[in-house]
Design a protein around this nucleic acid. Structure first.
Lengths: 240, 240
DNA sequence: ACAAAAGTGTTGTCTGTACACCCATGC
DNA sequence: GCATGGGTGTACAGACAACACTTTTGT
């Protein structure tokens, strides 16, 4: 019984749960971006020993006066200047030896951002680099597992919600949209089948404007129908 | 930069991360059982003020010398005497006011056990009761959200892995198996379609023995083909 | 012989997937 | 006029869902 959640100590003592140890709680952020071709993640190359030169996720610690979700948002904001970004918890990582320096329990979150919304200035200031997730170098601690789990979560989420659109610029071509899904799912997707499925959802508005860099004919730009978009965000839909 | 994960302090100071607060970390267990008709969860009715008489999940705190996963296994063992049970992390819950008594970050795990493997003696000792998840009373703190999230995770997992079988006795009828899936998914399932699908997986072995309580004709008992079972556990399959 | 649950097939619909040619345009 | 990528439709296969009667046997 000594570890029952609510023991009688709770009542008789002014400080609740006085006999239990406290732990450092970290946040690690897997920040996804899309450059039009590959799915990328934002990593920092450590400038200091130990682990100097090795790659790491961006992170921080949970403060006393903030929720864990708030901590994740704060960490993202401090490192990228971005707020109101889609973030979702991946998992809690609590192995004893996961951080070689101290016992740290870490909670991973992933975020999806438009790769161009993160300025190069800010990126340099934090020694951050976009890395192609297909060719990931070794990462410190258990960060590679976090990235793999986050990719899995992203896949699941994108399959039922239009969150992937946050990775694209405001206007985009069908080819870019398809390339995004191919990058997330790491499989080729049939052009005609994809177009049909996306159109059937009625979330796209075709613009007059064409993208003319890649072909003589040019391909139409699209934007989201915001109303339909938010509806699908809430109610869900089967994308893939 | 003050919250960068690995600051220079890490190098110059003997204690790493000295400037960050520590937190109590709790484990809350959603323990699923199946009585042949309904999906149940194991809850305790609090014997003490405050929140006396209210329902709570079973839980405990994470110690210094154990991983979070180990803590979950230990808490389950201390409360039920069971080990080697399927457990999976649900999520980390970190709102500031989630526990009214202290700032506690909690990590929820769910477990699936055979409802008869938990003795009545042990259950009484911990004031634990199996509660039908369809008619859940109000729970303390954010436990109702944890239960809802755990049910969702269970559904997802059961759809691709045969873990639901851990909820059944060693030998069971097709009717019981179907009732289990109906209870987990909270929808009626067509008898013929279900039978066909289950048989097509080749994970069942038909016994000579029949269950004769429910009908004159009697229904055959089945057991798992352990080999095939573990194969599907690893590689996955689409159940539903 | 009858009551009560067990066991068993077929059909239509939908969804997913494979596949190839014409179009519009800049040079 | 030709080279380049953009845009579009059809047909087949497999999965899923709906549906009802016969079998067994204890009383």
């Amino acid at each position: 019984m000594r570890n029952r959640y609510y023991s009688s100590k709770m009542i008789s003592q002014p400080l609740p749960y006085p006999n239990f140890p406290k732990h450092l709680i970290a946040i690690d952020c897997i920040i996804f971006g899309f450059d039009g071709l590959d799915l990328k993640g934002l990593f920092i190359k450590r400038q200091l020993e130990p682990e100097k030169g090795n790659w790491s996720l961006m992170g921080g610690f949970v403060h006393e006066n903030e929720s864990v979700d708030q901590a994740a948002e704060r960490v993202l904001y401090e490192l990228t200047g971005l707020s109101n970004v889609f973030m979702e918890q991946v998992k809690c990582y609590g192995n004893l030896d996961r951080d070689a320096h101290a016992r740290v329990v870490s909670i991973a979150y992933y975020a999806v951002i438009n790769i161009h919304s993160y300025s190069e200035v800010e990126r340099d200031a934090h020694h951050a680099i976009w890395v192609d997730l297909q060719n990931l170098p070794p990462l410190i601690f258990d960060h590679a597992i976090m990235v793999a789990d986050a990719k899995e979560k992203l896949k699941e989420n994108v399959a039922y919600h239009p969150i992937g659109f946050a990775l694209l610029p405001p206007k985009f071509t069908l080819k870019q949209l398809r390339a995004l899904y191919e990058a997330i799912y790491e499989v080729p997707i049939d052009k005609r089948n994809f177009t049909r499925k996306i159109f059937s959802m009625n979330i796209l508005k075709k613009l007059e404007e064409k993208e003319k860099k890649n072909s003589r004919k040019g391909s139409f730009y699209f934007v989201f129908d915001e109303e339909k978009y938010h509806q699908l965000l809430v109610q869900g839909i089967k994308f893939m």
